[in-house]
Amino acid sequence: MKTTNFLCYVLLTLMVSFCTSCSDDENSYDETLVIASEVITTNEGTAYWVKKNGKTNWELMHTGISNFNHEIGYEYIIRVMVYKNKNAGPDQSSHSYHLLRIISKEKKNSEVPLFTTDVSFFNQ
Rank of each mutant, 00 (worst) to 15 (best):
K2W: 05
K2M: 11
N5C: 09
Y9C: 12
L11K: 09
L11F: 05
L12N: 08
T13E: 02
S17M: 07
S17F: 08
F18E: 11
C19S: 11
C19G: 07
T20W: 11
T20E: 11
C22L: 14
C22A: 12
D25Q: 07
N27G: 15
D30H: 11
T32Y: 08
I35A: 05
S37Q: 00
S37P: 02
S37I: 03
E38L: 09
V39F: 01
V39Y: 00
T42Y: 06
N43D: 10
E44L: 15
E44M: 11
G45Q: 02
W49P: 01
K52N: 13
K52Q: 14
K52G: 09
N53S: 15
K55L: 11
T56L: 05
W58F: 13
L60G: 10
L60V: 12
M61Q: 15
H62I: 09
T63N: 03
T63P: 01
I65S: 04
I65H: 00
N67Q: 07
F68I: 05
F68N: 00
N69C: 07
G73T: 02
Y74Q: 02
E75Y: 01
I77D: 00
I78E: 00
R79C: 03
V80F: 00
V80S: 01
V80E: 01
V82G: 09
V82I: 09
Y83R: 06
P90Y: 03
Q92W: 04
Q92S: 13
Q92V: 10
S96E: 09
Y97M: 04
H98G: 05
H98D: 07
L99Q: 05
L100T: 06
L100K: 07
I102Y: 00
S104C: 01
K107E: 05
N109Y: 05
E111R: 04
V112E: 05
P113C: 15
L114K: 13
L114V: 15
L114D: 14
F115V: 11
T116A: 14
T116D: 12
V119F: 10
F121D: 10
Q124N: 15
Q124R: 13
